[in-house]
Design a protein around this nucleic acid. Structure first.
Lengths: 341, 341
DNA sequence: TTGTAGGCGTTATCAA
DNA sequence: TTGATAACGCCTACAA
């Protein structure tokens, strides 16, 4: 079997044409004769010619590759975001390089170097939990790689960012809790370094204010998303002198652990404390006793939108553009209204 | 800010050295003086020099990229396999290009072309549900791209393959069912074109034989993994004149839908019919009433092993090698022994 | 120990 | 309408 892959040169010499003619013919360049085009394309097919992207990339000084940096693919949300981003990228003729930081700053730095080395034409990032200093990201920008943040964005960074409208989501969640008679509403949040945590918090607080419920600092706990941390946060809430009767969770993974905590450690309250999370994780449909509700986000669309903002930056490089903050709405999806307080 | 990225030439001219000297110095080539190396490396760091992989790939006629083709990242199993593969690849200095067929043969073909165009140095594949003809895969092989199958392998294809030892797993599952008194044991299987379905089936059948239970064809149903198909398969089983009291499912996703089917359509049996799946999906820990058990597979290790077999083929190209079939053990993980028949 | 030359596959530019 | 040439950044032989 012939293991050497056919090149443009091979086609050219076989057809007694020049490589440049073949190159143009293959790409339907207008000033190549129809007959020649036909001959070239026919032979190309015969030889199973596949253009060598390595060469094209090199020649064009472009990798036609976009990078996406996420915490982990074990998180359903980010998988969906990757899908949206990939779809957009592929449709635009780009490949995608995926990197998972696994919430490690060190890994994130390494991945960023790999991305640079691969000369990705642009990059979208959801920063790791550990990322407080962003100098490694700024280095990419200075190397000419445009960046778009999504979901997790460092506070005080002026780049495009695409995320869910978690603020309004929190307002809606609180309103729904209140409509069901709750007055003690807990909240398990995440790193205060992210805008997405701050926005959730503001929505939570403003939601309370709108319903004339006093804000109680002790009802807000922080988790780092490990199972143990989720359980601890819920435990701290339930051990308060006046524990919450409803809890808003940063995301469904936190919510699920909170439910486990209730079932195991506070069984008497497991059927009364109501929970709302973010994400509308499909797992929920398999639960016999689903939580009250979840704020359905649009990860796929967020990935697409981030891709389109990024590609715009790639194709129209500029410095000092006006950073956009795109927020896609969350929708409260109610699962369970059977519980009674 | 300087947007042109530094090249070896830049360093060379700045230091009044030749590019080749710089190239060697950067890679610690033995016959470059220590002083020169120091000077070169120092300036390289100053200029934020990052080697241009595009150029290296082109020059080396190698992409240093391995491909992995999976049905979908929404499946937890394949995400874990990707992780193992990526870990291995990165540690060996390779990038990874991920492709999702979404169970579509057309998409699989497209992805394979992309992989070829990107000149991936090798490829591991779990074929799509629709893939019955494998000529598109053979074309890759003939183009010199080594292939390793994992999990889903077409019957009658002679390449390396890494998968779970689902045969023994099925034997174990049946034995466990029998130990709990079951005699009518159903089985929901998948495409008979995959070795992994055939092996499950053989284990199921041999398991029955070992315990002198007659094989009943009507107790075996096939599903294509859509929710509707899973439900239908379970429904067909339960509507038999003599329905099963226990069911082995191709994977946990099927098992979960089967549980839903029981709860909704056969509530009287929901607490007695016992189920075992494959995968030990972490979702299960969040269920109030978990299934009886699941066969824990080793997707991460499977991804790694497939990577190492592949890299061996990449580095030692040969034709007519003896294909290996590597089977990693499944372990029966028991969740629930409370049910009584 | 350092330098020079050639080439990987493709395409843009310019010439024929 | 087609062809010749040079260039992209890096590496490998080989020469100095």
């Amino acid at each position: 079997m012939d293991h050497k892959r056919a090149t443009i040169k091979d086609i050219a010499s076989e057809l007694k044409l020049s490589p440049s003619t073949v190159s143009k013919a293959l790409r339907d360049h207008p000033n190549i004769g129809v007959v020649t085009k036909e001959r070239v394309k026919k032979l190309a097919k015969q030889l199973h010619f596949v253009p060598n992207q390595s060469a094209i990339r090199f020649k064009q000084q472009k990798s036609f590759t976009l990078g996406i940096l996420i915490p982990s693919m074990l998180d359903h949300f980010y998988v969906a975001a990757v899908e949206g981003f990939e779809k957009f990228a592929y449709d635009s003729g780009y490949n995608v390089l995926i990197g998972q930081s696994h919430e490690s700053l060190l890994r994130e730095k390494e991945l960023l170097l790999t991305m640079q080395s691969n000369r990705v034409d642009g990059l979208i990032i959801a920063i790791s939990r550990e990322t407080v200093d962003t100098s490694h990201i700024n280095e990419c920008v200075q190397a000419g790689i445009p960046i778009v943040y999504f979901m997790r964005k460092p506070i005080n960074e002026d780049f495009h960012c695409v995320c869910s409208d978690v603020y309004t989501g929190a307002i809606d969640a609180v309103a729904y809790f209140v409509s069901r008679g709750h007055k003690r509403i807990g909240f398990i949040n995440a790193s205060s370094f992210w805008t997405t945590s701050r926005d959730r918090f503001l929505g939570y607080r403003d939601g309370l204010v709108q319903h004339h419920i006093p804000f109680d600092k002790s009802l807000v706990q922080e988790s780092d998303f490990t199972q143990e941390s989720n359980l601890q946060a819920m435990r701290r809430l339930m051990q308060l002198e006046s524990p919450p009767t409803a809890v808003l969770a940063f995301k469904d993974q936190v919510l699920l652990d909170a439910m486990c905590c209730l079932r195991r450690e506070f069984p008497s309250k497991a059927t009364t404390v109501e929970l709302i999370g973010y994400g509308a994780n499909p797992i929920i449909q398999y639960l016999e006793h689903p939580p009250l509700a979840s704020l359905k986000e649009q990860p796929y669309e967020i990935g697409q939108k981030a891709g389109s903002l990024l590609l715009d930056l790639v194709n129209h490089p500029r410095t000092g553009y006006q950073p956009q903050l795109v927020k896609l709405p969350c929708e409260l999806q109610v699962f369970n209204t059977h519980k009674q307080r």
